Simulated scan of single mutants.
Amino acid sequence: MTSAATASDRLVAHFAGKLEFETDSSDVHADQENGVRFVLVDSRGDSAWQQGRIVGALHLPTAEIAVRAPHEIPLETPVVTYCWGPGCNGSTRAALEFAKLGYRVKEMIGGFEYWAREGYPVEDDHGRIKRAKDPLTAPLDSITCDC
């Protein structure tokens, strides 16, 4: 096998692996809208949860996953984790905890920040929060970015 073929195979494996283990806010929202069965887990702490969260998310801080998840989420249910945003690896740590327990899990890249910036449903302890789409993260005149 040539080194070019080997490099190409490694690239394909790398990017296929990313798509197997990561998702984004657009795809998660589409799955919610289409009734795809999964649990969306907010792995942040209490004050972050109270400040704002994705509508329909389950609050399960990373430190509590090992104890609570087996009682609250059936093992056969896919899980998507999120934390603050791309500058935070909390969703990675949470996804690792779910993987250790045997769950099928994906990490939502971009986290709460990009979910909110793309104008998807957000709420806090007082109810829903209406946010405009940020033109730097989502097309204003289209449902998807067609990527």
Results as ranks from 00 to 15, higher is better:
79 V>W: 01
13 A>R: 03
12 V>I: 08
46 D>Q: 04
95 A>T: 03
133 K>D: 13
16 A>V: 11
26 S>A: 10
142 S>F: 13
5 A>C: 07
56 G>I: 04
136 L>P: 05
1 M>D: 11
10 R>N: 07
42 D>M: 01
107 E>R: 15
71 H>V: 07
9 D>V: 02
5 A>H: 09
145 C>D: 14
66 A>T: 14
66 A>E: 07
91 S>G: 08
43 S>W: 02
83 C>E: 00
115 W>D: 02
3 S>R: 15
83 C>Q: 00
38 F>C: 15
46 D>S: 05
17 G>K: 06
85 G>A: 00
144 T>D: 10
146 D>E: 11
115 W>Y: 02
132 A>G: 02
111 G>D: 07
103 Y>M: 15
20 E>I: 09
23 T>S: 14
138 A>W: 11
144 T>H: 10
2 T>P: 12
71 H>P: 05
52 G>N: 03
134 D>C: 07
6 T>N: 10
120 Y>F: 08
143 I>R: 13
32 Q>H: 08
84 W>Q: 10
128 R>K: 05
30 A>Y: 09
17 G>S: 15
76 E>L: 08
66 A>V: 07
73 I>W: 08
15 F>D: 03
32 Q>W: 01
122 V>N: 00
70 P>E: 15
141 D>L: 09
40 L>C: 05
93 R>Y: 08
129 I>Q: 03
38 F>S: 10
146 D>I: 09
138 A>D: 06
109 I>M: 14
70 P>H: 14
67 V>H: 11
84 W>Y: 08
135 P>K: 01
122 V>G: 00
9 D>L: 03
102 G>V: 12
68 R>N: 09
93 R>E: 11
141 D>H: 07
71 H>E: 15
32 Q>C: 06
45 G>D: 01
24 D>I: 13
144 T>G: 07
23 T>N: 11
122 V>E: 01
51 Q>D: 08
129 I>A: 01
44 R>M: 01
117 R>T: 10
102 G>L: 14
23 T>Q: 12
80 V>Y: 01
77 T>W: 02
61 P>A: 00
131 R>Y: 13
69 A>W: 14
4 A>E: 14
100 K>I: 07
50 Q>S: 05
49 W>M: 03
135 P>A: 12
74 P>T: 10
74 P>R: 10
55 V>K: 04
3 S>C: 15
75 L>E: 11
112 F>I: 00
132 A>I: 00
38 F>M: 06
71 H>M: 10
124 D>W: 06
62 T>Y: 00
